[in-house]
Design a protein around this nucleic acid. Structure first.
Lengths: 137, 137
DNA sequence: AACTAATTAGTAATAACTCCTAAATAAGAG
DNA sequence: CTCTTATTTAGGAGTTATTACTAATTAGTT
């Protein structure tokens, strides 16, 4: 994936995955795909409200769900909260249970896929390490 | 941890962790700790209703939360659903997104703790691999 | 430019979980 | 063994994240 996305590139990406390039959807993609980042649906909705004051949470949920079905983003949960991640490569996370900070983290040998599961088709995996960050102890 | 737990052992375990050994709580511990297993709060509640027809979901939620605070069980989330795990050792899981099957799984080198995080105090970590199980494809 | 299926915003509904309170009870003190 | 008290319980109310539904709008094709 390139670091920079033009409007036409995002538009094409959406169309290639069977989605129409509406302004709302373009904005969601820019917010998520341009930066390799984590977002909750609610965080995204609040950010988008600045440019689209009437955008509904529903639209955000729906778009995120479609992007995930297309494999363009991943979803996982931390403390019961859905997190969408534009970094689709298998990687680990580290989570501070005090301040809720969530970061990508490198782990040695972390991308080994499971043993004893030849017959499964594994699509992806993520790990969350929980603890307390430097600032919180 | 031993494989078998007597009533007195569970009772002592609870008291050692500042919890009273009520019949409801004993039953929850037996259900979770006796078998190394995964349970959702709702699954547990339904199981306990057979012996305690009036037990409230609230009691189950509260007890699970206390057991987790004591480190006797772990909580993580799959597809937005809380899962309590009586296997507190760091290990991985494999999840079928079709039939919702969730299994423990061995992964090579999977328990390496994260690099570059000297200042964090890591308490535990779990990984979930997502895909489709043999029966579902 | 017109057409049509996809998309949107808004509202209602659901599910999981938490908060609150009065009654019941486990466990220590006497 | 009984008394006492802080913990625990059940039940109901409240909250939050998410999904379902619907009518109006719109992107992208013809």
């Amino acid at each position: 994936m390139s670091e920079e996305w033009s409007d036409t590139e995002i538009s094409t990406l959406l169309n290639d995955n069977g989605m129409r390039a509406t302004p709302q959807r373009m904005a969601i993609c820019k917010e998520l795909l341009l930066k390799k980042c984590h977002r909750t649906p609610n965080e995204l909705h609040e950010e988008l409200c600045q440019r689209f004051p009437t955008i509904s949470p529903n639209t955000v949920y729906l778009t995120l769900s479609q992007l995930e079905s297309s494999g363009l983003i991943r979803r996982f949960y931390v403390d019961g909260q859905a997190i969408y991640d534009s970094n689709t490569a298998t990687h680990d996370h580290i989570y501070c249970r005090v301040c809720k900070l969530l970061l990508d983290v490198g782990t040695e040998n972390s991308i080994h896929t499971p043993k004893c599961t030849e017959e499964w088709s594994i699509e992806w995996g993520t790990r969350v390490w929980s603890g307390v960050c430097p600032k919180c102890h």
